[in-house]
Design a protein around this nucleic acid. Sequence first.
DNA 1: TACACGACCTGCG
DNA 2: CGCAGGTCGTGTA
Length: 151
Amino acid sequence: MLSIPWENLYFNVVFEDGFAVRSFFSEIPAFKTEYIQFKEQLEDYFSGKKVELDIPAKLNVSPFVRRVLEEVSKIPYGKTATYSDIAQKLKTSPRAVGQAVKRNPVPVIIPCHRVVAKNGLGGYTTSVLNPKVSLKIKEKLLSLEGSGISF
DNA sequence: TACACGACCTGCG
DNA sequence: CGCAGGTCGTGTA
């Protein structure tokens, strides 16, 4: 487990057998951070260094969601893709993609914040926080990566 | 099986 | 602008 401070929040990750299984944002640190392998990598990321996160995750999701998240993982640091881009690659619909990324158990580690709507930002519902705050997080993650998005 | 519901998109007025 | 209609995987019953 670990909790890393960022902005006025904390980013928390749950590990099992060396795999990330769940991550979320919270106002209060959810865990007492023990030493783990990926702490420094994440701290670098949140401090604004351009690091491609490389953290193994164990996903307990449907085959379809897995395929979508697989595509999402390919979006490079600082870039974005639209829901319909991904839909086209997987021969499905943008809405189905939206549902799939919504079920991403490990936000940030699988960069679902890089998936945006064609006209706008799209949504973001990870964490225990309310939707408005969540969306703010998405925006800040994108600007942290310097995606050059202005809304 | 059936149905309602999206972190969407497109076309029409 | 607004809005209907299309889309397709999921959860629930």
